[in-house]
Amino acid sequence: MLKKIYKFVIGPYSLILLYLMFLGMGRVQYEDNVVRMEPVLSTIWYIKETILWKDIILIVLGNVIMFIPFGFLGWIFPGLNNLKSLLFSFLSAITIVEAFQYFTRMGIFEVDDIILNTFGVYLGWLMRKLLEDKFNHLTL
């Protein structure tokens, strides 16, 4: 039952997430193309420059939590049951999305976003494995 709900929800969820990444949360087009390639440093800089903890949590943890559902993609695409295949596919896709943000100037190409998003996928994959191991006798 859970797998059927997931299959129904992940498509619209992906579209909403893409909307947020390009148009949502008051985004405006940057005047210049921006790239932040220093892993972890841009997140540390963001934390130092941001006054409100709410904003820090929203951005940093949001970049992890919002991508947890993609760790369950193996339920739809059996080739993505393997962690290595899932992460390779996701890294390819999120790099393309970040590149689109760069080229459209509707966001910043940030290595930290790729790292945090991928960590979210990894956490989702771990959750899926735990669910499957705990309830292996049930049909999810």
Rank of each mutant, 00 (worst) to 15 (best):
E132I: 14
D113T: 10
V121A: 05
I51W: 06
K54V: 08
G11N: 01
G79R: 10
Q29C: 08
R105N: 03
M37D: 04
Y30T: 08
I108M: 11
G74S: 12
I65T: 13
F8E: 07
G120F: 01
L2T: 03
F72C: 04
W75P: 04
L86Q: 09
M37N: 11
K134G: 13
L18Q: 04
L116M: 11
L91R: 07
T139E: 12
N63C: 07
V40R: 08
I115T: 15
L126I: 15
G74C: 06
V35D: 01
Y122A: 12
I10D: 09
N63R: 13
F119R: 13
G74K: 11
L86G: 09
I44R: 15
G120A: 10
M106R: 14
V35S: 10
L123W: 08
T118V: 14
K54S: 08
I59R: 15
I59D: 07
V40S: 05
F100S: 09
A99Q: 05
V40N: 11
M21W: 02
I10T: 09
G124K: 05
S14E: 00
T95F: 07
I114R: 01
Q29Y: 05
L140W: 13
I96S: 04
Y122P: 01
I108K: 14
M25C: 01
G74H: 09
M21Q: 07
G11D: 00
D32F: 06
E49S: 14
G74I: 01
W125D: 06
V60D: 00
W75Y: 10
F22G: 03
M37C: 05
Y13F: 07
Y122T: 13
W75S: 11
G24P: 00
V28L: 01
L83V: 15
K4R: 12
L140Q: 13
R128M: 15
T43H: 04
I57A: 11
N33R: 14
K84V: 09
L87M: 15
S85K: 13
L138M: 10
I47G: 12
S42T: 13
Q29I: 15
H137C: 04
I115D: 07
G124Q: 00
T95S: 14
F135I: 12
G124Y: 01
D55G: 08
N63T: 15
L131V: 15
V9T: 11
Y6D: 03
M21E: 00
K4T: 10
I47Y: 12
M21N: 09
L20A: 11
F72H: 10
